[in-house]
């Protein structure tokens, strides 16, 4: 109740919660480009020659971009490089079959896991990476994945 009240009050002042400190979500929506990094991982991100990445996660990303009225601009690189680019604000999103147990937690924002898979008896909870603290983008992506991410 209180939370809803505060939210209403703030939106009355032209503020939305959450808002990105660096305005990523607004920029993607108005600029029409979603800059996505991809690192190959069989079953999640497939690379076929010089084409754009394909597979489960690239498909999800394309769908999310469409939801934001944006085109995806792909960058294919190794995981560490993608993390650096996210930190430097050169990417808006990164996929690569990442799990919530990955080592980059304190450098990038991880979405809530959108899919859980059993691998050799342990459960892998799959996540995507977003720039740290871009909470509006992260929340929008998590909501979208709630509706579309589970379907494999």
């Amino acid at each position: 109740m209180l939370a809803a009240g505060v939210a209403l009050l703030l939106s009355g002042c032209g503020l939305t919660i959450p808002t990105d400190p660096d305005g990523t979500l607004d920029r993607v929506r108005s600029g029409g480009t979603l800059r996505v990094g991809a690192s190959p991982r069989p079953g999640w991100v497939e690379m076929q020659g010089v084409h754009a990445p394909s597979g489960r996660e690239p498909q999800l990303v394309e769908g999310f971009a469409e939801h934001l009225d944006a085109e995806v601009e792909w960058t294919v690189a190794g995981e560490e490089h993608l993390v650096t680019m996210l930190e430097d604000g050169e990417l808006d999103l990164a996929v690569g079959g990442f799990t919530d147990a990955n080592a980059w937690m304190d450098k990038v924002g991880l979405t809530r896991s959108y899919a859980e898979v059993d691998v050799d008896g342990t459960t892998e909870a799959h996540v995507m990476m977003v720039p740290m603290g871009e909470n509006a983008l992260q929340s929008e992506l998590e909501r979208w994945l709630d509706d579309h991410g589970g379907a494999s």
Binding site: I17, G109, R112, G133, N135, Q138, S139, E142, D146
Partner: peptide, 27 residues
């Protein structure tokens, strides 16, 4: 200059910003 990430929470079929949950816990 750490930007704290606060995403969403999915609870009882509703998705909402986790900040609200933290505020409720802090109250």
């Amino acid at each position: 200059a750490e930007h704290p990430p606060i995403g969403t929470t999915h609870l009882l079929g509703v998705t909402f910003w986790s900040g609200w949950l933290m505020i409720a816990a802090m109250v």
